[in-house]
C-alpha cells in the first residue's frame, strides 16, 4: 500500500521457509490488511538483520522494531517461560503455545518489561528420529543423538548419549553416522530433508522450544490507538494460528516422509511411557529449585503449566 503511514521492521533468525518466518509473513499480511494499509511491515528473515543471540537486545535498542526470539536457547534469561521448556510432555504446539501465552500473561515477568509482547508460541513437541528403530528405552541406551544444548540432560536421563552440535553440522553428522539420530520437532524431516537419514521416529513428546515475538517499547508507545488495538487483538489469536499451522505442517512432513522414505513410526511400550515422567522428574525439580532461588514461585509456576496443559489439550484434541 502506497499510503502506509507507519513502517515496522520485523527481524527473524531462521531461514525464510521455516515456521517462525512463515508466521511472520502471515502476520505481516494480516496486520497490513486489518489496519487498512495504514501499517507496512518489512520483514528480515534468516538473520539478515539480527541473529538469535542479539535479537532481544536489538529490539530493545531499536535495530528492528519487532523481533522473534527463541527463549529456550538463552537459558537463565527467561526463567518463567523456562517452565514450558521443561519435559512436561506437551502433545501439540497448539496446546503448548496457548499454555505459554497464558503463563506469561499471568506472571507478566520482569524480563519483558523493556518490550511489548506481540505474541508467543512454541515449536511442536520434540520426538526421537533415528537411523535404526527405537522401540523401547533399551534401544536408546548408548545411542548418540544430536540435541540442542539446552535439552542434553533430558536425553541423558533417558539413557542416550546427547551430542550438542551446531544445527549446521547436523546433516553432515547424521549422514556420516557421527550421531545415530536427533531429537527435535518433526517438521525437520521434510524441511531439512532429514528423513533421508533418519527414517524411524519414536513418539515421546519430550519438550518444546519457546518463542516470543517482541516489539520495541518506544515504537509501541508511538503507535496510534487503532493500530495498537489491531495488534493487541491478534496476540492470542496468533499463538493459536502459529501452533495450528505448525502442527499441521508436522503432519504434512510425516506424510511426505512416509511416501518418500517409508518413514516408520513407533511408540514406546505403555510401561515405559509411564516410566519416563519419573526419569525426567529430577530435571523439573531442578527447575523449581532454580526458579525459587531466583525469587519466583517455582512450585506454583510448574503447577500452572500442568493445569494449562490439561486444559488446552482437552480443548484442542
Amino acid at each position: 500500500p502506497a499510503q502506509a503511514q507507519i513502517k515496522l521492521t520485523y527481524a527473524n533468525f531462521p531461514p525464510a521457509p521455516t515456521f517462525p518466518c512463515v508466521q511472520m509473513e502471515e502476520w505481516k499480511k494480516e496486520v497490513e490488511k486489518r489496519t487498512g494499509g495504514k501499517v507496512a511491515v518489512q520483514t528480515f528473515p534468516g538473520s539478515t538483520l539480527l541473529n538469535p543471540r542479539n535479537m532481544f537486545e536489538g529490539v530493545i535498542s531499536g535495530t528492528a522494531d519487532i523481533g522473534c526470539l527463541a527463549m529456550s536457547y538463552q537459558p537463565g534469561r527467561f526463567p518463567v517461560s523456562e517452565a514450558v521448556d521443561q519435559p512436561v510432555g506437551f502433545s501439540s504446539a497448539k496446546a503448548a503455545s496457548l499454555a505459554l501465552y497464558d503463563l506469561i500473561e499471568k506472571y507478566n515477568p520482569k524480563e519483558f518489561e523493556k518490550v511489548k509482547i506481540i505474541t508467543l508460541f512454541t515449536c511442536p513437541p520434540a520426538n526421537l528420529m533415528t537411523k535404526t528403530s527405537v522401540k523401547s528405552l533399551k534401544d536408546l541406551k548408548g545411542m548418540e543423538l544430536r540435541v540442542p544444548g539446552t535439552a542434553a540432560d533430558i536425553i541423558k536421563n533417558l539413557g542416550g548419549i546427547p551430542i550438542a552440535m551446531p544445527q549446521s553440522d547436523t546433516p553432515e553428522a547424521l549422514q556420516k553416522g557421527v550421531v545415530k539420530g536427533h531429537v527435535s520437532s518433526m517438521e525437520v524431516l521434510k524441511d531439512f530433508n532429514y528423513a533421508a537419514y533418519t527414517a524411524n521416529t519414536t513418539m515421546t513428546n519430550l519438550w518444546v522450544v519457546t518463542f516470543s515475538v517482541v516489539m520495541n517499547k518506544e515504537k509501541w508507545d508511538s503507535l496510534p490507538a487503532d493500530v495498537k488495538k489491531v495488534i493487541d487483538d491478534m496476540r492470542k489469536e496468533w499463538a493459536l494460528w502459529t501452533g495450528n499451522y505448525v502442527d499441521n505442517h508436522v503432519l504434512e512432513a510425516l506424510k511426505w516422509s512416509k511416501e518418500k522414505y517409508n518413514l516408520q513410526m513407533f511408540e514406546l511400550p505403555a510401561a515405559e511411557k509411564a516410566e519416563i515422567p519419573k526419569l525426567l522428574k529430577p530435571l523439573i525439580d531442578k527447575y523449581v529449585e532454580r526458579a525459587t532461588a531466583a525469587g519466583l514461585p517455582g512450585e506454583q509456576i510448574i503447577k500452572d503449566v500442568y493445569a494449562l496443559k490439561e486444559k488446552y489439550e482437552k480443548q484442542y484434541k
Binding site: 543471540r53 542479539n54 537486545e57 536489538g58 535498542s61 531499536g62 535495530t63 551446531p166
Partner: peptide, 23 residues
C-alpha cells in the same frame, strides 16, 4: 538509518558473535 542506540548495541553484540562463532 535506525539511530545511535541501535548502532551501539549492534557493534557490541556483532563483534562478540563473530569472535565466538564456532564455525
Amino acid at each position: 538509518v535506525t539511530g545511535l542506540k541501535a548502532a551501539l548495541g549492534l557493534i557490541g553484540t556483532d563483534m562478540w558473535n563473530i569472535f565466538s562463532n564456532y564455525g
